[in-house]
């Protein structure tokens, strides 16, 4: 229908994507060598452990915020149990590598899958609820998961599960983070994503337009849980020990805060807010007593002055740099 799609213009059409890919690869390589340590002219440069840890945390926070945004921002279902799925993923993957001797990749995948199944089991009864009722029910589900974990001796009960081998490294973090963002971006820019958005906008109208709202709410919930589970696996294999109380509802709040701060429904917003809050947290480590006070003030101030979040529902795209005003090929061009 349009000549633009022919092979000759491939580079032109995909300029933003290619630029982003090149940029990300550069970030990956630079940090890869910096974390490993390298020598220039006899001086050894290596990113210290503490900063490295925070970069890892940033990756995990991005995964969790973006996956929660799929549920809260895109599908419009206010869920407060994300930490519960993270816990399920963390424990499952840790059991896989520690007790069953499976490879890390299998552990992560198993963590994600078990969390996804939990997502479906929890989602089917609770997603009939709306708004605040759903929020409080999912919060309850998250807490129930935590209490159940405390009561399972096989995984160490309240004192936690250790020693978990340290298998998480920059390569895992980077590729899983990028993969998650790409997955969610591709999902929401497809007919499935539009179906989810239509449920957010007006559930009754969506149903009468042929959208099975339960199916899409559960689907979003299940994908969200999957990525939370994978992030939990990364988390577990970075910290040597995990305890059920790490995954209480405050952890869920943390990610909800990132999503709302970034702007509900804005992926780039979630990424920015997750990274930003990680940096804020890092900067506040020097004043441990006041850390949470300042954090809460930042939160209140941003909400009062930017109630729609930093990005609103908009995405940060290349169009603001005037490189390419049209979105990707799926949009097509009009016939008139």
């Amino acid at each position: 229908m349009n000549d633009q799609n022919k092979s000759g213009s491939f580079w032109k059409r995909n300029t933003p994507g290619i630029l982003v890919a090149v940029g990300l690869l550069a970030v990956y390589l630079i940090l890869h060598f910096w974390i490993q340590g390298f020598e220039i002219g006899g001086n050894k440069y290596q990113l210290n452990k503490y900063y490295t840890l925070n970069i890892y945390l940033m990756g995990m926070n991005i995964i969790l915020a973006v996956s929660l945004n799929l549920v809260c921002g895109i599908t419009g279902q206010l869920a407060l149990g994300h930490a519960g799925f993270m816990a399920v993923g963390a424990y499952t993957s840790a059991v896989c590598t520690m007790k069953l001797g499976l490879p890390f990749a299998v552990g992560l995948l198993a963590g994600g899958l078990v969390a996804a199944v939990m997502g479906i089991i929890i989602g089917l009864p609770t997603l009939r609820l709306k708004g605040d009722y759903l929020a409080i029910a999912t919060l309850g589900m998250g807490e129930i998961i935590r209490v159940i974990l405390i009561n399972i001796d096989y995984v160490g009960g309240a004192s936690g599960l250790s020693p978990i081998p340290k298998l998480t490294n920059w390569t895992w973090i980077f590729f899983i983070t990028v993969g998650t963002v790409l997955f969610v971006k591709n999902f929401i820019n497809s007919t499935y994503g539009r179906a989810c958005i239509s449920v957010r906008e007006d559930e009754i109208a969506a149903e009468t337009m042929g959208i099975n709202s339960t199916r899409y709410k559960t689907m979003a919930f299940c994908f969200g849980a999957f990525f939370a589970g994978v992030a939990g696996g990364l988390y577990a294999h970075n910290f040597f020990i995990i305890q059920p109380n790490l995954f209480n509802f405050f952890k869920s709040f943390e990610y909800l805060v990132m999503v709302v701060l970034g702007g509900l429904g804005s992926l780039t917003g979630s990424v920015l807010a997750a990274s930003g809050l990680t940096v804020v947290n890092l900067a506040l480590q020097n004043v441990p007593d006041l850390r949470m006070v300042v954090y809460s003030l930042v939160l209140i101030t941003v909400m009062l002055f930017r109630p729609g979040g930093l990005m609103g529902t908009k995405e940060l795209t290349f169009s603001i740099f005037k490189l390419n005003k049209k979105r990707g090929g799926d949009r097509g061009t009009s016939g008139n």
Binding site: F183, N186, F187, S190, T191, Y192, G193, R194, A195, I197, S198, E201, D202, I204, A205, A206, M209, G210, I211, M219, T313
Partner: peptide, 29 residues
């Protein structure tokens, strides 16, 4: 009861979802 924050085009795309032939996996990949 339109989908107010969707574009005009996207509003009309929603019902065609019923007849979509591509799956979630091919969308994501």
């Amino acid at each position: 009861r339109l989908f107010k924050d969707l574009t005009v085009l996207d509003n009309v795309k929603i019902p065609y979802h019923m007849h979509a032939k591509h799956g979630v996996i091919s969308s994501v990949l």
